[in-house]
Write a protein that binds this DNA or RNA. Structure first.
Length: 488
RNA sequence: GGCGCCAUAGCCAAGCGGUUAGGCAGCGGAUUGCAAAUCCGUUAAGCCCGGUUCGACUCCGGGUGGCGCCUCCA
């Protein structure tokens, strides 16, 4: 093992095995994640994919690696269907609403970023747009023509799949003897039905078009990712990620293009599984399509993240009311522990205590379990188990008392590092006391109840607690006095 | 039709050839004026049929069931 070796093991979709992760350049990671085609609302599938890869990137950075995360914005639409009639999704949608295709792309790109921000997804370092990289795409196409992997017909350029024997290996399919013309309409221009477009001739009304050596046209579905990953990460880079639904044909074509051009391309392929809603595939036709905006109206962002991370990224995750409800309790448990330890830090005695060592050892054990889980192909469900173990360690330590401020602060910091910095489901603000205009009135009600208790007027005190609870205020009496918060 | 994934307790979800996953829910106890939160204990599992093994939830084979991809989709 070279000195570039890490403790991390990643499941590589291409070899279908878990392999030790060894960065090409020690200490650095280049990762390319397939971004969205910006032509409609962001949905739960995006949430699953981009929260998953967000945690991948966060973990890589947490372990000390320097990461460059590139994620494209596809603003040249993919073809609407396989009949190659040349109309792409962006143009079709734009024509229907009578706006320029790039107006539409801009609108949905902004929505994508705002939704991802709301989910706490750290923005990619570079978000290259397909329309901004036409020259790079043309250059790659020229290279493929020169190497005999592509051919031009009537102003369009197609990739010759027969020239690349590895085609189909990523997705595990044998394309040698596909049923010609059954599911895939054969267009006269293609020499082989498996061939796919690198460059398309623009027909009369096509708005998005660029001049090229082959005439006026626009790039094919897949070439942008090959061109842009190369530009920003180099001919060979560490990780390529994306949704399982992109494995074929998109990623298969990317491999054919990049390797056909002589590039090493991605060392490791990661594919996240898909989202179901109430047990069924999420799709517009089934009517269970859920946008991120809709999901965030009903659930806090932390809860949506927890939902994604409670299942392994390579497993399907089901979005259901029942499932989300169960996670609310789990999230509250984590927050309660954070609040509890945060208050204890403030109240704790400063000098080192004899019980510190045992406490810190338990903290370290939980963190080690967390680390082992994440290093095993980003096993977030298992890591969450360790995080809950850590919550228990903190709760127990606080309840027993006698710990030094430094020890408690360490426990709190490790908890926030794992649950916050790495998983993004916890933050210091969620442990902060409730504020806002209503807070001082609530404080008054709490103080009133304290006085009723002091006067042994327990029936009135209980009544008051019930009343404010009905108005969304959760009240807890602790050893150090009452604590309250608004119920989310 | 081709390819792939999964079947774990009431629900969600991991690891592991023999040793407590974890969360939600339930039950008992501690604590509390009563609660809440917390802690301790506890209930509860491995779709079916074979095989390998001293021993299988964990490996192999065969069933059955569910899901997904194969068409734009994360």
């Amino acid at each position: 093992m070279s000195d570039a070796a890490t403790d991390l093991v990643i499941h590589d979709s291409f070899s279908r095995t878990k392999r030790p992760f060894v960065p090409i350049t020690p200490g650095h990671v280049g990762i390319y994640v397939c971004g969205p085609t910006v032509y409609s609302d962001t949905h739960l599938g995006h949430a699953k994919s981009y929260v998953s890869f967000d945690v991948v990137v966060r973990w890589l950075r947490f372990t000390g690696l320097r990461v460059r995360h590139v994620e494209n914005i596809t603003d040249v639409g993919h073809l609407v269907d396989n009949s190659d009639d040349g109309e792409d999704k962006l143009i079709r949608t734009a024509r229907l609403s009578e706006v320029h295709p790039l107006e539409l792309a801009e609108k949905y790109a902004r929505l994508f970023f705002s939704d991802m921000d709301a989910l706490g997804v750290v923005r990619p370092d570079i978000s290259p747009r397909a329309t901004g990289h036409i020259l790079e795409q043309q250059a790659l196409i020229r290279e493929l023509l020169a190497r005999g992997h592509a051919y031009e017909v009537n102003g369009s350029v197609y990739y010759s799949v027969a020239s690349f024997p590895e085609y189909g290996r990523l997705s595990g399919r044998d394309t040698e003897e596909g049923e010609v013309g059954h599911r895939v309409a054969v267009r006269g221009e293609k020499r082989d039905p498996r061939d796919f477009a690198l460059w398309k001739r623009a027909e009369g009304g096509h708005i998005l078009r660029w001049e090229s050596p082959w005439g006026s046209g626009f790039p094919g579905w897949h070439i942008e990712c090959s061109a842009m990953s190369c530009r920003y990460l180099g001919e060979s880079f560490d990780i390529h990620g994306g949704g399982l639904d992109n494995q074929f044909p998109h990623h298969e074509c990317e491999i054919a293009q990049s390797r056909g051009a002589g590039h090493g391309f991605a060392n490791t392929w990661m594919h996240n599984n898909l989202v179901t809603v109430e047990g069924r595939k999420m799709s517009k036709s089934l009517g269970n399509f859920t946008s991120i905006t809709q999901a965030l109206e009903k659930n806090e962002a932390d809860l949506v993240r927890l939902w994604v991370l409670s299942t392994h990224y390579r497993s399907q995750v089901d979005y259901s009311v029942q499932g989300l409800d169960a996670l609310k309790g789990a999230l509250e448990r984590l927050r309660a522990a954070l609040r509890s330890v945060s208050e204890a830090v403030t109240a704790a005695a400063t000098p080192a205590a004899t019980t510190d060592a045992a406490f810190l050892a338990e903290v370290a054990t939980a963190e080690a379990a967390f680390t082992a889980a994440m290093n095993d192909d980003f096993n977030t469900p298992l890591a969450l188990g360790a995080l809950f173990d850590l919550a228990r360690v903190l709760n127990t330590g606080v309840a027993r008392g006698g710990l030094s401020r430094a020890a408690l602060e360490t426990g709190r910091a490790r908890f926030l590092a794992l649950g916050g910095e790495v998983l993004g489901v916890l933050d210091a603000a969620s442990a902060a006391p409730a504020g806002g205009d209503a807070a001082r009135y609530v404080d008054l009600l709490i103080e009133t109840r304290q006085r009723l208790k002091a006067a042994k007027a327990f029936d009135l005190a209980d009544w008051l607690r019930k009343e404010i609870a009905a108005r969304g205020v959760v009240l807890e009496d602790t050893a150090s006095g009452p604590r309250w918060r608004f119920n989310a």
